[in-house]
Design a protein around this nucleic acid. Structure first.
Lengths: 201, 201
DNA sequence: AGGCTAAGTTAGTTGTCCTAATCAGTTAAT
DNA sequence: ATTAACTGATTAGGACAACTAACTTAGCCT
């Protein structure tokens, strides 16, 4: 049998493999925490994720095509979920002004209530992270954000909203800089999901 | 609307929140990479995960009850998946000697072939991690393993196979030590999934 | 022996997620 | 300006994941 990061007997030899295995465990945490909230609210994981995403992102990102890209599923999958959420009266459709085939999704009051109840599903994880010192958190974040940037560069993550891929981002003499805020960026200022993101040419 | 790690406008203020958001992105990578392999092999993500797990773990962990705990799903879910995998002739059932209600699952030759083809699904992620220096990887792993240990202590992750929770593990004067290997453990020696793991009393 | 617990299955339901096909509107190109 | 190509969204059909509830059978315990 080939080597693999999931082979405990081989895993030990490779540090990067052990990091992958650690990430896998943390992924499982997301799954578990999300399901917990899902059961409480009578919704499915993807339904909750959609509601949370819609709550915190502008209308230009809240249509079927973009949501499909965002969650790495096909459009019919999003279309199905939206049908259900509409039926449950948690979201509303607003026709697009520029394209009559398209529409934007917004939350209803009931939808906002659900978001308030569920958006904190990652809190138990956050609590453990807070146990690390600020210095540790800073280096951890710096390493994670560099991994994520690479993943985006390599098309493994399709959605781009980090500073590194933004048109307002520049890096001179190792110093990251945001041309929109017109200020240098420390490691901890780098954003994973920047509201002002605009893709670079 | 309440604060949330998924709110890009608020996210910036909290370092731990940004780390959570980063973990969320990396979780998505697992999902994407696994689906890719799934489509190629004509199996579903959970089916592949089951096969990989069975390939690298002893018979005592390869029964319905444990697999359900391992993947944080109910027994019927595992039972269903096993039915399908058996039907596809990728696994075999071996009756348990100690308990006639139970059985152990093993891979068929066809199952092993699939594992060889799919177990490397995390490779693109591993490749990015390898771009970090060994020092960076060491501190990253140390921080990840401490987070994971805390998550297990707090029952958020139900399955325990890290050194920290093992009966053979001890820590004297900040020096981790394995009483089975009878040797001190450096940060990079800590195991996330140790084959010799035995729960401490 | 009787009652509790545990291993696994079955039945029934809801919803995810896919592919393929369809419809309608937008854009580009001759 | 009209056709061709593309794109946004939906529908249809199917495999399967995930749940709960109820059941069967076997082990355990006092």
């Amino acid at each position: 049998m080939k080597n693999s990061v999931f082979n405990p007997s081989q895993q030990q030899k490779s540090l990067s493999g052990k990091i992958v295995a650690s990430f896998e465990r943390i992924s499982e945490v997301f799954k578990v925490l999300l399901w917990e909230k899902a059961k409480l609210s009578g919704l499915s994981p993807i339904q909750i994720q959609l509601l949370i995403f819609i709550a915190y992102h502008g209308p230009e990102l809240c249509n079927v095509s973009h949501l499909a890209k965002e969650f790495n599923v096909t459009k019919p999958t999003i279309s199905d979920a939206i049908k259900i959420l509409t039926h449950k009266a948690l979201i509303e459709k607003f026709p697009s002004v520029s394209d009559s085939r398209s529409y934007t999704i917004g939350l209803t009051e009931a939808g906002k209530t659900i978001v308030n109840e569920t958006a904190g599903f990652t809190q138990p994880l956050e609590k453990q992270i807070e146990k690390l010192s600020i210095t540790e958190q800073t280096t951890l974040f710096s390493q994670l954000s560099s991994i994520i940037f690479e993943l985006q560069q390599n098309q493994i993550l399709s959605v781009q909203r980090t500073c590194y891929g933004c048109r307002y981002f520049s890096q001179q003499n190792e110093q990251p800089f945001c041309k929109l805020l017109n200020s240098p960026l420390a490691q901890q200022d780098i954003r994973i999901d920047c509201p002002e993101f605009e893709a670079s040419a």
